[in-house]
Design a protein around this nucleic acid. Structure first.
Length: 121
DNA sequence: AACTTGACGAGGG
DNA sequence: CCCCTCGCCAAGT
């Protein structure tokens, strides 16, 4: 896919982010993966910061460590975390949340299925 | 047109 | 668990 041909490069990110339900989160890398070729975690972050003033629930996008990466922005450091906490996302003392619990996947875009080693022995 | 800079992520030490 | 390095690709200078 040729990005130069696709003026909706940003739109796709916004549309996806808008689908994240309150109290759930997605990571930059996850979004890049769902959107496919041409998208990388970095570009997703770039695209997202440019939308600050739009109707996009940007606070629901965090990094793969389960933390907010808004350290260098003009945004107050804890704003994102505070907003998420108001939606019901719990963070520990280190500012980290449990991705296994809050991470959300759009329908049909699930990663590889579980492969539980349950009865291995 | 080249160089730098990110709301990142995986891997190694 | 923290810190560093590298790969990634659009935008700004």
């Amino acid at each position: 896919m040729n990005i130069a041909n696709d003026r909706n490069y940003r739109e796709r990110v916004y549309e996806l982010v808008k689908q994240i339900p309150p109290g759930r989160v997605m990571t930059y890398g996850q979004i890049a993966r769902v959107l496919g070729a041409g998208y990388t975690p970095r570009t997703v972050g770039y695209v997202l910061h440019a939308s600050e003033s739009e109707m996009v629930p940007w606070q629901r996008v965090i990094n793969s460590q389960g933390k907010c990466s808004t350290g260098r922005l003009t945004i107050p450091l804890n704003l994102q975390q505070t907003m998420l906490e108001q939606e019901g996302v719990a963070f520990d003392a280190k500012g980290k949340c449990d991705l296994g619990m809050y991470e959300w996947w759009p329908e049909g875009s699930e990663p590889d299925d579980v492969t539980q080693p349950s009865l291995l022995t």
